[in-house]
Design a binder for these strands. Structure first.
Lengths: 352, 352
DNA sequence: TTGTATGCGTTATCAC
DNA sequence: GTGATAACGCATACAA
């Protein structure tokens, strides 16, 4: 805790605390004699003055702190988002307090409470579920909220999301061009906006290519991790009519699919093509190279920070609060032409 | 910011603010009638009271906040450390404020200042250089400091480090067992404790096996990144007497060495063996599989948090403040027997 | 242009 | 046991 206070500088310079306060405040400084400002600043530097942000915050109700809610910082999706946030807020004098929810609703409530107790000026939430109850609490506290990566169902809540529909459409198109007609989808949890949005996009894209996707070619992951990807891929590939390609709702599910394929004695892309979503930084190093949708994580973080700070500092300003970031398709080795010509509609009958 | 205050509860219940404060404080509660405590708590819950930590901190000089200084959260070494810290502090009611220095000293000063302004109770520093000037500032502020992963030269500063010597010794032993006698080292920057410690360990281990390491088999990286690893490996492999194995001071340098080897038309481990240090989580997925030293990142984070909290809450307590964590060797595909039998001392003469 | 006074919400030290 | 009061460090409305 800084120990030299305005009072100390006041005593030292002979001016009054309020004068000192003003001399140190760039916005109030203009009302003072240059001489005073100079003297005070000189003393402040000499004495090693450092403002006590707690005291200032208590007075102004502004802490220059942004709360950031994420599921787990060790998930490689989040560090770049956090970094993007930092890059924007740090030059503006803000800091962030990051809390991890482990994707558990019960923890989430508490963690948001922690942020509120500390008087954060705004919250960036990268872990919301579609109908997250935590929303009420944040709203009641009157703290600006921006979600990133995922969105709430309520369209009034500002959100920075990726163009899920476009990304999925590109993956479907790429698989179709490679010759696939039997494409399965490992969908994310339906509590997540990305889960249902990507599933819907998959259905739409498939149908636009005249593909009929049987219900049993949709596997539903309960969590976005490798294990669920493995489980779902194994189930899909064990079907009487297995898909020739698996379009996963995210990279971790796709990585899990890689494992399942290997474990079943098959290989990717020879036997099964796989695509993902997100493009973690290190993916290019992992064979056969996952074809996926690159989302710009740093930018997502940056935009969310810019938005929340705008909401904090200019609450009246009107501007876009629902931003869809463009995505990019990244083609690597995990997609190839299907092995056999499964393309003719041989056995359309149900084989659950 | 929580809007219902002690004053509100006081008005509601008819008790005095100070009484309400006591009723809500587990430690002061004992001096009150059960009835009062009950009534106050009931009202607090009903009204949705949330303590204002700023005000409390202003009064008590304790913010229950830990500052964490890291170079860059997108470096995969740090998320697990941060997570380990969180796991310890969160149940104790602390939060962390994380700042990124980008390994730049000028930024570091400012970032530590930010932490101090916010009255952090302690600082965990994962980015120190050996003679970091920031130390003085932190010491002057009287804030407990613990370094993790790296150490300061001053032995009085508490630190959680890994057993660098043991890790390096194991890598050397493994390479020697595989038949290597010409082992080069890519050393980390000498401003970092890990840079010089691992280099010293390398020299010691090599000499214990009777290997003579010519000075030109020590490459010095100026930063711990892939690019420097590539540059150093390329230089080593371009020597008239190239090494058959490269022992890198960390995984990123090793990954860079992989690149250099590939670019030079060589392959690992057939032409050159490579080892690293740290063991990033995703390494096992990258061929040929880096043989490396696994450090327990979460534990390092945890121990550093436990230590800093002990220093905060029991400043008098005596206990170990310099902790060396055990490491584990992880053997993967990047080490094999040297191709030719370079082992005879053919041309010892200098070839710089 | 500068000084005075007050309050932010909490805790701690007094009295009673 | 409970109430009154001051103080933490700062910012600001108001006075001069």
């Amino acid at each position: 805790m800084p120990s030299v206070t305005l009072k100390d500088i006041a005593r030292e310079t002979g001016f009054h605390v309020s004068t000192v306060s003003r001399a140190l405040d760039p916005r109030a400084r203009s009302a003072l004699t240059d001489q005073v400002v100079q003297k005070v600043n000189e003393a402040a530097v000499r004495m090693g003055y450092r403002p006590n942000r707690l005291a200032a915050g208590l007075r102004t109700k502004r802490t220059k702190t942004i709360g950031v809610v994420i599921p787990d910082i060790t998930n490689p999706l989040f560090p770049p988002i956090v970094r993007g946030i930092e890059k924007v807020i740090e030059p503006l004098g803000y800091v962030s307090i990051i809390v991890n929810t482990d994707s558990r609703r019960d923890r989430e409530q508490g963690q948001v409470g922690v942020l509120l107790e500390r008087g954060v000026d705004g919250i960036i939430h990268a872990a919301v579920e579609r109908d997250d109850p935590v929303l009420d609490e944040i709203r009641r506290a009157g703290v600006p909220l921006v979600t990133v990566n995922r969105a709430l169902e309520d369209p009034d809540i500002p959100a920075i999301v990726n163009d899920d529909a476009d990304g999925i459409a590109r993956m479907v198109a790429h698989l179709v061009e490679a010759g696939h007609r039997e494409i399965a989808h490992i969908a994310g949890p339906e509590q997540l906006s990305t889960g249902i949005d990507r599933l819907a996009a998959f259905r739409a894209a498939a149908s636009s290519f005249g593909l009929e996707v049987p219900e049993y070619h949709i596997a539903r992951a309960t969590r976005l991790n490798e294990e669920e990807g493995r489980r779902c891929a194994e189930a899909l590939l064990s079907l009487a009519r297995p898909p020739t390609a698996i379009l996963a709702a995210n990279d971790r599910l796709a990585l899990g699919a890689f494992e399942a394929i290997r474990e079943m004695g098959l290989s990717c892309p020879e036997d099964v093509s796989v695509t993902g979503f997100n493009d973690y930084d290190f993916l290019r190093l992992i064979p056969p190279g996952l074809t996926t949708v690159r989302v710009d994580k740093q930018t997502a973080g940056r935009r969310s920070a810019e938005l929340v700070i705008r909401l904090i500092e200019e609450p009246e300003s009107k501007g876009e609060t629902r931003i869809i970031l463009p995505v990019e398709a990244v083609f690597r080795g995990s997609v190839a032409a299907p092995r056999a010509a499964h393309s003719e509609p041989e056995q359309r009958a149900g084989v659950a």
